[in-house]
């Protein structure tokens, strides 16, 4: 892990204004608050957390879909956080974003071939035969026959549309792909097939993934490292095996304890965490988890804990984590 990081995020903030009926700002929704981490080339970093924790905002802010409020995102030696949306277009070749269902973004009136050529026309100066060769190569990589090039999206199945959507992202040969909840809404039998496809594409094209998901069992299977988010903060980050074996932050511990484990003790007999996350527009003082934390003490209300890298390959933001 000594190589230069491909992506480095430093104190990234994204605040959304909360406005009243008269459009006057009455507060901030702190979707991302001082988020920092690095991503090594070729790794899969999982970003997990419950809804509203800021994981999707993180992906979109890295991509330039949202402009960051503060902080730096270093990608290929350049700070891309403050780029205006049109300036970040040039980066899209190297940094791609994959929505939950990439097949849904296909134009129903274009053939698969037209959809796959489009990004190359926009971003590269390749001639038609070169584009065609690249398109065929990518199509084979996602496991679709070339005969599909002349079909329209409605003529192929949902799973195949998803593969075309993925192919479209890969035609520009990106180095980093942000996958936003790529398996939610999929049945388990299909999910395993899609995950295998992600892994084989990663190997084939040397990709780095940011894998945003709420499904911890999937993250455990395919990610090298995991960042756990809670209300706009990274509360724990580290190697997947360590996080799952010895979670340090009480929130990570509860999150892992909440996953049903077939054959094991039933969560309904053992689970003890109460309450739900507070509203991100009205955060508690100090540590954000203290309102639900079984170990909260007076210090937690006064001081917001910073990430402590006190364990090998693992860091947690908690005053009392051991």
């Amino acid at each position: 892990m000594s190589a230069a990081p491909i992506l480095e995020v430093r104190d990234l903030r994204k605040y959304f204004p909360v406005r009243n009926l008269w459009k006057r700002r009455i507060g901030w929704l702190r979707a991302l608050d001082d988020v920092s981490f690095t991503v090594q080339p070729g790794e899969i970093l999982g970003i997990v957390g419950e809804s509203g924790c800021g994981k999707s905002t993180l992906g979109k802010t890295l991509m330039g879909i949202h402009t960051a409020t503060a902080g730096e995102v270093m990608f290929q030696g350049q700070d891309i956080a403050r780029l205006r949306p049109h300036e970040s277009r040039g980066l899209r070749q190297h940094l791609q974003y994959c929505y939950q269902d990439p097949g849904a973004s296909l134009d129903p009136r274009w053939t698969i071939r037209a959809s796959l050529h489009e990004p190359l026309i926009v971003h590269t100066a390749l001639k038609e035969p070169e584009r065609e060769a690249r398109v065929r190569e990518i199509l084979a990589a996602v496991g679709l026959p070339e005969t599909h090039l002349d079909l329209y999206p409605h003529e192929i199945s949902g799973g195949q549309q998803r593969r075309v959507g993925l192919a479209r992202i890969l035609t520009l040969k990106p180095s980093v792909v942000i996958l936003d909840e790529p398996t939610s809404g999929l049945d388990v039998s299909v999910q395993a097939v899609i995950l295998k496809l992600f892994l084989s594409l990663q190997e084939q094209f040397g990709l780095t993934y940011l894998f945003v998901s709420h499904d911890l069992s999937v993250v455990r299977m395919i990610c090298d490292r995991v960042a756990v988010m809670y209300l706009g903060r990274v509360v724990e980050i580290g190697e997947t095996s360590r996080i799952f074996a010895t979670p340090r932050h009480p929130y990570t511990q509860s999150l892992l304890a909440a996953i049903p484990r077939i054959g094991g003790a039933r969560v309904t007999d053992t689970f003890s965490l109460e309450g739900e996350p507070p509203s991100p527009t009205n955060l508690p003082s100090g540590c954000r988890f203290r309102t639900r934390c079984p170990r909260a003490q007076a210090l937690c209300a006064q001081q917001d804990p910073a990430l402590r890298a006190d364990w090998p390959g693992q860091a947690a933001a908690c005053h009392f984590a051991e």
Binding site: G159, D187, A192, V193, L195, K196, R220, M221, I222, I262
Partner: peptide
Amino acid sequence: KLLDSLPSAETGLRGIPGEI
């Protein structure tokens, strides 16, 4: 096959080929 499709460290990733 449905049970085998569940992501787990023991079985790895096994889906069910084909579609519904």
